[in-house]
Structure formats: structure tokens, C-alpha cells
């Protein structure tokens, strides 16, 4: 009974926030609704018992995506009024409404037609998990059984950053991203940026480390690291490095490169591509996760602060 009330309330809140995100005319309010929606979606994942997905949803789906959207909203602020004037006509409204309704109906029909109980590979995963030496089945799936997919995911992040950097004006190529911020000596933001990062960095590393055996992992840990770096940048305590710096680029590709090397070494030392040598699976997985945590942290923060906007020498 209490489950019905709790879960019912959660579903109602999530649905109304989803509607609010779409219906609200004000961009800032829509983004706020979207961030809260992501947080509640995280709670829903907790209720479903998927702590790993909940952490990822809260950190990436809600946190970093919210920061990216806010940046986009600030960039678009001046052009928004002009876009409001040129609202699409009634016919365009009707057609887009019909298309959206058709897609929603199609999705709903497909979900309702899913076989029950759903086909599951979970027993097979639990059976083979000891071979990977990690105790968290999600990490086992991500870094051993479906390593190829996860490798491509880490590559996609770097490619996204390359696309963002592609927006740089020619004259500023190799420059520093983000605005130059005056270093203030006091104020709540500076205080926050001084006190929070030590705790946050520890928490990020903890999430990566615990990921082998408990919910957590490189994406969740890396996101927290990215948030801590963003905080110090926002407060003006540090300045963003020029994008031409070699160490920065090395940090960006460290994760995918380590992953690829580990995958390729499987051809020599184990049974094939992305196979780990028996008995050494856990060290290899930890090495990949450690390098990926750094890369994800650096890449996410650089994604959020955008393309270079001023010369390298300020």
C-alpha cells in the first residue's frame, strides 16, 4: 500500500515535470524542470533497484546535461526574442503534433507488446561474473562482456568535444575556453570552490574505486571530478588551460587509448579482441577505469565550458 502511494506520487511528479519541460515557454524554467525531472528519474531508478543507473542519471542526465543546457540558454538569450516572433504556423503545429502523437503511440504499443517475463541474460552474467574478478555485475557487463560498446562510448565523448572545439573561430584556435573571470577574494562561490573540491575529488575517486564491487564507476566518478573543476573555474580560482596544451589532450584520450591498448593486447595474451588474460581481468579493468575516470572528468568539464573564446595569453 505504502509502495503504491510512494511510487504513484513519484510517477505523477515525473510525468508533470516532463510535461512542464515541454510546455514552459521560458527557457530557464524549462531547464530547471528538466534538471529536477532527472533527479526524480534517479529516484525512480533507485526504486527499481538499479543504483548504478540512478547515479548515472543524477550525475550525467541531470547534472552535466543541465550545465550544458544552461550554457546553451545563455548563448541563445539574445536571439530568443527574434525566434519567438517567427512562430511556426498552425499547420506546422498540427503536423508536428500528429507526428509526435504517432511516435508516442508506436513506442507505447511496442512497450506493451514486450514479452513478459522479459528475456534476460542476467543469469548468464551472474554465472560468468567470477571470471572477471569484479563483484558488481554492471561493471562486469560494461568492461568485460560488452567492452567494445563501452570503449565506443568513451570515444564518443572525445568526438563530442572535438565537435565543440570545431566551433572555434580561426583566430582563437589553441586559445582558452570560457570567459575570463575576475578572481574574487571572498563571496559564497569562492568559499564553496575552496572547501568543496577536496571532498568532491575524494568522492569521485571513491565512486570509481568502489565501482568494481558496488554501484559506481568511471562515469559517475568522472562527472563529480568534472563538476569540481567547473566549480573552481566558475569561481575564478583557476583559469581554463589553452586547448592546445599537450597534457590536456593526453588526459582527454588517456581513457580510450588505455581501453584500446588493453583490448588489443587481448589478441596476444588472451583469446581475442577485448578478452582479458585469465587471472588478470581485475587489474586490467581497474587500469581502464582509472584512465577513463580522468578522461571523462576532463572531457565533460571542457564540454560544459565550450569552445575556445580568448587567446592563450589572455
Amino acid at each position: 500500500m505504502s509502495d503504491v502511494v510512494l511510487h504513484g506520487g513519484l510517477i505523477l511528479l515525473i510525468l508533470s515535470l516532463a510535461v512542464m519541460t515541454v510546455v514552459t515557454r521560458d527557457t530557464f524554467a524549462a531547464i530547471t524542470a528538466f534538471v529536477v525531472y532527472g533527479m526524480l528519474l534517479g529516484l525512480a531508478w533507485v526504486a527499481l533497484g538499479s543504483i548504478d543507473v540512478a547515479l548515472t542519471e543524477a550525475a550525467l542526465g541531470s547534472g552535466i546535461t543541465g550545465a550544458l543546457l544552461l550554457r546553451a540558454a545563455v548563448c541563445l538569450r539574445d536571439k530568443e526574442a527574434a525566434a519567438e516572433v517567427r512562430r511556426p504556423g498552425r499547420a506546422a503545429h498540427r503536423v508536428s503534433g500528429l507526428v509526435c502523437a504517432a511516435i508516442a503511440a508506436g513506442l507505447a504499443a511496442m512497450v506493451l507488446m514486450l514479452p513478459d517475463p522479459a528475456p534476460s541474460l542476467a543469469p548468464a552474467v551472474m554465472e560468468s561474473l567470477p571470471a572477471t574478478q569484479v563483484k558488481n555485475p554492471v561493471t562486469g557487463v560494461l568492461l568485460a562482456f560488452r567492452a567494445w560498446d563501452t570503449f565506443l562510448e568513451t570515444v564518443v565523448l572525445v568526438l563530442a568535444l572535438v565537435a565543440v572545439w570545431g566551433m572555434t573561430p580561426d583566430a582563437l584556435w589553441g586559445g582558452r575556453p570560457g570567459e575570463l573571470r575576475q578572481h574574487a577574494h571572498d563571496g559564497p562561490l569562492v568559499f564553496l570552490a575552496r572547501v568543496l573540491p577536496p571532498v568532491g575529488v575524494m568522492l569521485g575517486i571513491y565512486l570509481f574505486w568502489i565501482g568494481a564491487d558496488e554501484p559506481g564507476g568511471k562515469f559517475q566518478g568522472g562527472t563529480i571530478l568534472a563538476a569540481m573543476w567547473m566549480l573552481t573555474l566558475l569561481a575564478g580560482l583557476t583559469d581554463a588551460p589553452p586547448v592546445s596544451r599537450r597534457w590536456l589532450r593526453a588526459a582527454m584520450v588517456a581513457g580510450p587509448a588505455t581501453f584500446l591498448l588493453a583490448g588489443l593486447s587481448g589478441v596476444v595474451f588472451a583469446s581475442g579482441l577485448f578478452a582479458y588474460p585469465p587471472g588478470f581481468a581485475k587489474p586490467v579493468i581497474l587500469l581502464i577505469e582509472a584512465a577513463s575516470t580522468v578522461s571523462i572528468g576532463v572531457t565533460l568539464c571542457l564540454l560544459a565550458i565550450g569552445p575556445p573564446s580568448r587567446p592563450a595569453n589572455r
Binding site: G187, P188, L189, F191, L192, V195, L196, V199
Partner: peptide
């Protein structure tokens, strides 16, 4: 403690 700290700082920032 983290909630206490971050919400206090955030409310100051919103007020500013």
C-alpha cells in the same frame, strides 16, 4: 553536511 554546505552557498548566490 554536503547538503547543508551547498544549499547555504547556493541560497547566498541566488540572493546576490
Amino acid at each position: 553536511a554536503l547538503i547543508l554546505f551547498s544549499s547555504a552557498a547556493a541560497s547566498q548566490l541566488i540572493a546576490i
